[in-house]
Simulated assay, not measured.
Amino acid sequence: MFITFEGVEGSGKSTQIALAKDWIETQGREALATRQPGGCALGLELRRILLDARNTHLDPTAELFMYLADRAQHVAQVVRPALEAGKAVLCDRFHDSTVAYQGFGRGLDVESLLGLGRLAAAGLAPDLTVLLDLDPEQGLSRARGRNHAAGASQSEGRFEALDLPFHQRVRQGFLELARREPARFAVVDASGDPVAVFARVRQALAALPWA
């Protein structure tokens, strides 16, 4: 199973992926948790550039192609081999984030992005996408607080520094993608306690055809 987790900044993806991995392993299955960008050596270098708050000069199209390069390498090097080995793969962001952020957020053509996504992922698509839906204002407050506590305001704060209307467009983009593909998406209310949120995520995981 290939399961992706999506959502605005601060929606709790990392926490929910960790809980989901633990739950899958209690079911007797091997699971791999990974992320985009940053799930392979090339991705780590691209992540450093893409999320650095000092890199305010990046052109949206250049930004897009860095994400696509990360995705192509990550799928080839990490995701597909793990799936072929029989593991469940849990990925923190995939191409839906590119469409939501660079398409709905930045204003690049959404239909073109969908085609580029299929190319970069060599046709690989998630079995399930968990969309952790959260009001962007609340998510930004969480994310900025987290970065401040970790001293990461310069290293991984580039998107958190963007204005609220950008993040509102991103959220609407995610919801539009979920509306287009209701069979793939599970839209989960990400507000409240992480354990309560995971109870909702677990329902979506349990509905997959694991046998």
Rank of each mutant, 00 (worst) to 15 (best):
Q27K: 15
G28S: 12
G28R: 12
E30W: 12
A31W: 06
A33D: 01
T34Q: 00
R35A: 04
Q36W: 00
G38L: 02
A41I: 13
G43W: 13
L44E: 15
L46S: 03
R48G: 05
R48Q: 13
I49L: 10
L50F: 00
L51G: 01
L51S: 01
D52H: 13
D52R: 06
R54L: 07
R54Q: 15
N55Y: 06
N55G: 01
T56H: 09
T56K: 12
L58K: 03
P60F: 03
A62I: 10
L64A: 10
F65I: 13
F65H: 14
M66C: 12
Y67L: 14
Y67Q: 09
A69W: 01
A69T: 08
A69F: 03
D70I: 05
R71D: 02
V75A: 09
A76L: 11
A76M: 09
Q77V: 11
V79L: 15
V79Q: 11
R80T: 14
E84S: 12
E84Y: 06
A85Q: 10
K87G: 00
A88Q: 02
C91S: 14
H95M: 12
S97D: 08
T98H: 07
T98F: 07
A100Y: 07
Q102M: 06
Q102R: 03
G103N: 05
F104E: 05
